[in-house]
């Protein structure tokens, strides 16, 4: 009788746990329509590693660089672990977590996030943290990101946070319960539409232009993490005209890069070299690049990755080429679909 009792107990416990995870999965936002950016972080786990370059940062990375262009033109396999308003500690812990899966040649960090020295908003935190797999890096990232009135448990068990979505469930919550539709290209969010820059907003005067200690601390941690793992760290600032990037901020990053022997590329200063045209290369009046802009930036970046960091051309690797062939096909299919949609408007 004992084995029956034990078996039943295991069965009951399993059922309870399964129900719990079923409910959690059901009520969590799926981010497949509307705010699709919430799906970005989790797409990394579908990968098989083998990326020589990993980008981390906010929307200025996932909307400004094209991994497919880097592969097609330079044979550089890359992935963008970007998310909306990704804070620097979130980028750091994503880097730390990435090392559990693979060891890239170069990490590229977009420095706009240096402007934030403390957590900003739960809703933005969610777009990065909910997509991460449970790990010590995720727990540390949650701890660093939580607002004062938040609880760690709500991040670790999102059901506690999202339970009231029960009444808002839509067809998509069931449709994408197991698998979501593919939306991104190695973390790149494609947009082919064009909306030129018409005005250039000036930055408000600030009482203090110094980056905060917390932000500096995480930049230093990034540097150490890279040094300890024999990985190069590259700093970039995408050519987005808003939010405003102050000269005083730029100077601080330049000084840090110089004193730590890091390459820092401010693409706002490289408009001529990259060929960025704000009349044709942005889809939202200069906040982000469209596909044309992202491909131009990637074409500029490729030779630097090759020459300065020795990132090899991996197009001779048959297995990698097969993987990227599929990615490239999907890339051009989406491009064609978006162009057709635009033409029909």
């Amino acid at each position: 009788m004992k084995w029956v009792k034990v078996t039943l107990r295991i069965g009951v416990v399993s059922l309870v746990i399964a129900s719990f995870f079923f409910l959690q999965r059901l009520v969590m936002p799926k981010y497949v329509n509307g705010i699709v950016e919430g799906s970005l972080i989790e797409t990394y786990y579908e990968e098989e590693g083998n990326h020589d370059v990993i980008f981390v940062g906010d929307c200025e990375v996932y909307e400004c660089f094209s991994p497919v262009a880097l592969w097609e033109e330079y044979g550089i396999p890359s992935f963008i672990r970007g998310s909306a308003q990704q804070l620097i500690w979130q980028s750091y812990y994503l880097m730390e977590e990435t090392l559990r899966y693979e060891k890239p040649e170069v990490f590229i960090f977009n420095v706009l996030a240096m402007k934030y020295n403390e957590p900003q908003k739960e809703a933005y935190n969610r777009l990065t943290l909910d997509g991460m797999r449970l790990s010590s890096a995720k727990i540390k990232s949650i701890k660093a990101s939580m607002m004062e009135d938040e609880n760690m448990i709500d991040y670790i068990i999102p059901l506690f946070r999202y339970h009231s979505r029960w009444s808002e469930l839509s067809f998509d919550d069931f449709r994408y319960f197991f698998n979501k539709k593919k939306l991104f290209h190695n973390g790149y969010y494609m947009r082919v539409d064009v909306r030129p820059v018409t005005t250039f907003p000036q930055g408000k005067k600030l009482p203090d232009y110094s980056f905060g200690d917390n932000a500096w601390g995480y930049l230093e941690k990034m540097k150490k993490l890279c040094d300890n793992n024999d990985i190069d760290l590259m700093l970039i600032k995408a050519p987005a005209i808003y939010p405003y990037w102050y000269d005083e901020w730029d100077e601080q990053i330049r000084e840090y890069a110089d004193s730590n022997d890091l390459i820092y590329l401010n693409f706002l200063d490289l408009i001529e070299e990259t060929g960025i045209d704000y009349n044709t290369d942005t889809y939202d009046t200069g906040l982000h690049m469209n596909l044309s802009g992202a491909e131009k930036l990637s074409r500029y970046l490729g030779p630097i990755l090759r020459e300065k960091y020795g990132v090899p051309d991996r197009r001779n690797d048959a297995e990698l080429s097969r993987i990227w062939e599929d990615k490239t096909t999907f890339y051009y299919e989406m491009k064609a679909a978006q162009e057709t949609e635009l033409a029909g408007k």
Binding site: R126, D154, H163, S164, W166
Partner: peptide
């Protein structure tokens, strides 16, 4: 009954 800070469950931009 846990984590009921936002009873709507919404993560709209007006949260905070």
């Amino acid at each position: 009954f846990s984590g009921c800070a936002d009873p709507t469950g919404s993560l709209s931009n007006s949260d905070s």
